[in-house]
Amino acid sequence: MTGKLMPLLDYFEGKKLLDRHGIKSVASRYVDSAESAVEFSEGDPIVLKLISGKALHKSKSGLVKLDLRGTEIKRAFAELQEKGKPLKPYRIIAQKMSKGGVEVIMGGRTDPQFGKLILLGLGGIYVEVFKDFALRACPITKQDAEEMIAQLKSRDVITFNGKNSGMVIQLLLSVSKMLMDNCRIDEIDLNPLILRENGYEAVDIRILTK
């Protein structure tokens, strides 16, 4: 969504907000040293991200390091610290690596005329390349959610040929409710949010408040 410079909600406040609305997101923690990142990984592959109000496009700016194990974690942490120097204040977040599935974007923004809008699209880099997204005014009904999915060219990819449609519909309804219940949310991006046949998790959370 568009990125005017607005107050960026702390990642974990955003995560708590999602929790309260029953929206799952990937296990994450702020880390202040390479050692604490290694400890967090418990031997699993992890992701390190640098979060700063001065850098809204993390992956484009090389501030996301994916699929790190063992010594890679230490090297990536040092690299992010170096990159973070001009971006202070910043924090580094460690997340469990979320593998497989389909990356979608679920988002919302406040339109000056129509109020809260909700968006679902093929996510990650594809959202800008293919512009395959559906938009509706909140609050949406179950039928609106169904139609949003049906409208997408990527509908069969996103729903695994319809197998997880119910889950995606429920998720859209939860995000719509969250947008309606929290008037302070100006814009929200859950991008990527990873959908699988049997589950999902929001991997990145960006919430701009009014």
């Binding site: 339109d111 005329q113 938009l135 509706r136 005014a137 949406i140 609106d144 139609e147």
Partner: peptide, 13 residues
């Protein structure tokens, strides 16, 4: 003139 996509979304909905 509001954002076209927002208008289109409303019309469609």
């Amino acid at each position: 003139a509001g954002n076209y996509e927002a208008h289109e979304a409303i019309f469609r909905q």
